[in-house]
Design a protein around this nucleic acid. Structure first.
Lengths: 371, 371
DNA sequence: CTCCATTTGTTAGGCAACTTGCTTATTGAA
DNA sequence: TTCAATAAGCAAGTTGCCTAACAAATGGAG
């Protein structure tokens, strides 16, 4: 019942909920009464137009509680505040000031606090915080290892600082996994149950969803496509890196090559522009990158056979590259997935974190009467 | 309730069932009464030893119904008959006489009929038939395509012949997927929730299980590891082939190489024996095959990160090869799965089919009262 | 403006599935 | 032989849902 109410943007009527849930009207009416008593639901008007008595409209009001999502990326911190339904109320982002787990977490809690205070949600109880972290989560869901793109090389507890600062439930998950959940919730993977998000930036990493469930793997290393055989040893990789400025190693490669007309490119956009203009080293570099990406996509295709692969990240979020990589993939396997561009771009991970927070909050709220 | 009874080899008491199901004793007692009325459960004695009144033991009797599993392999047909619990009652196998779908299915129904008649289950109602088929299943679960290792190149309906001959529910699934389910149920993957079975025979194919669910993919092509980039175009592959005599292309490769001391090897065993003895072409060929397998295992590892990879098939079911492939895999990815040998060998697919039949029958039986 | 088909809102009663709590029947061991 | 322990069976009570019936409101037809 509560679940159905949370899923709908617009207010809904009780008869509608009865039809949608398969329960009888008396049952639904009783449930709504309970929820109203708990402050989780409120009548917000009448539905009119159709013949017959007009039905009362209900929704989960903003005052019922708020959710926070934090994305700790390699170069940007993002904070999103929403109501319990996941409807955006406030959003802020800023560059990460200093690297290293402790400093970044302090910066993140500070940004979250200030965003919260300056929003209209300040007086409303914060229900859950979801944090998108760059690295492999330990089994207890609190400690993060291999967070190399924030220069945090020791395992570090990202959970406690948030829990201590806000005294609410805190849930963590990996950057790329959350990007996948985000694309599934509000992005281009809305209709898909099995797909992969491949983030190409400083390194390359994939978040894979199988029948609606994120694949994690025995060591939390599912989707570590940087280690796929053909290219596994070729370059120093930052596993799962999802650097938003992105493309660092690609630009590094660029600098070490001869034949540029003038300066080597300093941004990914510049590189692609010069490739489109036919500048030889740019064309070669882009073609190599496309081949590498196509090889990863083909490998995922041969093993998972997903409905689609979503490309994103500083390098991956480029139409030219996506089209070329898709074309190369089609030549490699007989049942290629469709290769599509991210619908959420840089914000996929925070949006995924909002979804995670909403799910987590929902589970707790459903414990109570008339869940 | 019925589920719990079917899962236990030995008879169990009602208080035990109450504890295991979390229900109260009166509820369990009533359910057992219902099931006894339907003939699905029978009292078979008393439990004694402990202080206190002795409890009545119950089990699902053989007369409650039987299950049939058929494995249509490239070189062997296998039939297994069991009771509703999946306990083996009769097993037969014979070489496939003529290739091609129609002939093989006729041979299979005939073998099933004769096995059934000569077993003590002849008078007991057959409940479900599960068929393991070599190829990709269509979406309706009845028609099989790409069954190249039984020389069936057109899509062919494997469902109707069995349904018409026995007038009971028929369920189909792919060879390798069922091998994975078999290993999970009664083989080496009993404790695992995410793992892969890699069958190396005429071709190479994988059955992948993620959190207990078989991965199928958007085109039913999940696990088609023959198409993985480094080797995808190297050899003519029979997708998903799980040839029990196995290793055809490996032996073909052998024949086309120079330097053999005498005749080239004609069996996989011979090849491995001669490699162990240090014969140059054999050593080189085995090493190449191990590298190819390691590359597949590493790719699966990098994408899925399974707890283990089970090797099987005519070529894969060899300790020497498994050890070498495992070693090579460890050098390729930093979080290698354990590589283990099949626990069921050739019989994995039939055993998996028994499991499928048991699951399917269980679902139907649970529809009735006191499921 | 009135009536009416239609749909919402509410109340009453009932049923299925499961409980708890109690009594009775056995059983092994002191 | 008696007793603690456990199983078996019975009698309410609880929960979560349902159907059935009716009262209240509404837009449109006449």
């Amino acid at each position: 019942m509560l679940g159905l109410l949370l899923e709908h943007e617009k207010p809904v009527t009780r008869p509608f909920l009865a039809a949608a849930s398969g329960l009888s009207r008396p049952t639904v009416f009783a449930a709504i009464q309970q929820l109203e008593k708990r402050g989780l639901v409120r009548a917000v008007g009448q539905q009119s137009g159709a013949p017959g008595r007009s039905a009362t409209l209900y929704e989960v009001p903003e005052e019922a509680g708020s959710l926070a999502a934090v994305d700790i990326g390699g170069s940007n911190l993002r904070v999103v505040l929403t109501d319990l339904r996941g409807t955006l109320v406030a959003e802020q982002h800023q560059p990460t000031a200093r690297p290293g787990g402790p400093a970044i977490v302090a910066q993140a809690t500070e940004l979250l606090r200030s965003t919260l205070l300056s929003s209209r949600l300040a007086a409303i109880p914060l229900h859950t915080i979801a944090v998108s972290v760059p690295g492999v989560l330990s089994h207890d869901g609190r400690t993060v290892s291999y967070a190399s793109n924030i220069d945090q090389f020791e395992p570090f507890d990202f959970h406690t600082p948030f829990a201590d600062a806000f005294h609410v439930p805190v849930v963590l998950d990996n950057n790329v996994n959350l990007a996948a959940m985000g694309e599934r919730w509000r992005g281009v993977a809305r209709e898909l149950s099995t797909f992969a998000v491949v983030a190409v930036g400083a390194g390359i990493g994939a978040g894979i969803v199988h029948e609606g469930r994120v694949m994690r793997g025995a060591h939390g290393a599912a989707g570590e496509v940087a280690f796929l055989p053909p290219f596994g040893k070729r370059r120093k990789v930052d596993a799962r890196a999802h650097d938003e400025a992105g493309g660092l190693s690609l630009l590094h490669d660029a600098r070490s090559r001869p034949g540029w007309a003038g300066e080597p490119p300093t941004t990914v956009e510049d590189l692609f522009r010069r490739a489109a203009a036919g500048e030889k080293p740019a064309v070669a570099l882009v073609e190599e990158e496309c081949a590498r990406i196509a090889s990863v996509v083909a490998s995922i295709g041969a093993i998972i056979d997903p409905e689609a692969v979503v490309l994103t990240g500083g390098v991956g979020d480029n139409d030219q590259l996506i089209a070329r990589a898709a074309h190369l993939t089609e030549a490699m396997i007989p049942f290629p997935p469709s290769v599509i561009r991210s619908g959420l771009g840089d914000r996929a991970s925070v949006i995924g974190a909002v979804y995670l927070a909403a799910q987590s909050a929902r589970l707790e709220l459903m414990e109570g009467p008339a869940g």
